[in-house]
Write a protein that binds this DNA or RNA. Structure first.
Length: 255
DNA sequence: ATGGTGGTCTTACCA
């Protein structure tokens, strides 16, 4: 059995105790984190290693930053999209226990039509090329992370209120669908789920208390890996912590 | 009541 999780922690230094606590209680084998906001020289490597984890990371100051924390050895690491010039650290792929794990922090996009939105769409185009090649090299593939896309209206607490917004725009949703058409499933939708399941709640407007969430953190399962996929679960717990991240973890269990 | 939260080499910018 292999449990693989994704969590946008919004600063690993701030959330370190929560991450260690969740690793211990969730008993996941692999955790991909986004928005570490820590440079590689300051990454808390020895803390994880002293607890028996392998780690790899690709960070920068203030923004973005990726890490993989694993009970098993981490091999064949990639830290960027090929053929896409980008100073922002948003990709970390590696092979763990024979499974290709691709951890992503998709750009937020700011406002539909803005420069950042165009960057998001360009980034997603380059991602498609990368995933196509990765799938060819590694058929057993998990693509996960903060996609900053709610794939369907049922992934949004109030779809009408969000019309015209980033995270739900048709172009972003088309990009998500194109990625699935390469040969992936949205793991969460492989199983029956309750209505109104979200992975992110804005810090503002008491959004978590009012359950004004979106499902924007995803785990995609390659077609070859689908028979091993037992469940995909959103663990809402950590969002209720004191001083929480605005995202909560999602994990897949593979047999 | 036209704001509001939270993180970051903070007084601006990002989400």
């Amino acid at each position: 059995m292999l449990k693989i999780a994704t969590w946008n922690v919004n600063s690993l230094p701030v959330r370190l105790e929560q991450v260690l606590d969740w690793l211990q209680h969730s008993e996941v084998d692999v955790l991909g984190v986004q928005e570490t906001k820590v440079t590689d020289d300051k990454f808390p490597k020895t803390i994880f290693e002293s607890l028996g984890y392998h780690v790899t990371f690709s960070g920068q100051k203030t923004y973005n930053g990726m890490a993989l924390i694993s009970r098993h050895p981490i091999e064949s690491v990639i830290t960027a999209l090929p053929n896409f010039e980008d100073e922002q650290k948003r990709v970390l792929a590696a092979t763990i226990q024979g499974v290709r794990v691709i951890n992503l922090y998709v750009p937020n996009g700011s406002v539909v039509g803005s420069e950042k939105y165009q960057y998001k769409l360009s980034w997603l185009m380059a991602l498609q090329d990368f995933l196509k090649a990765q799938l060819n090299d590694y058929p057993d593939c998990v693509v996960m992370g903060d996609f900053n896309i709610a794939p369907e209206d049922r992934d949004v607490h109030d779809p009408n209120a969000w019309i015209g917004n980033v995270l739900v725009s048709p172009q972003e949703r088309e990009a998500f669908a194109s990625i699935l058409s390469l040969g992936f499933s949205d793991g969460f939708r492989l199983f029956e789920q309750a209505a109104g399941c979200y992975s992110w709640w804005d810090y503002r407007q008491a959004a978590f208390r009012r359950d004004l969430g979106l499902r924007i953190d995803h785990i995609l399962i390659s077609d070859a890996l689908k028979p091993r996929c037992q469940s995909v679960v959103i663990d809402k717990g950590p969002r209720g912590n004191e001083r929480p991240s605005d995202h909560t973890p999602v994990f897949v269990t593979l047999m």
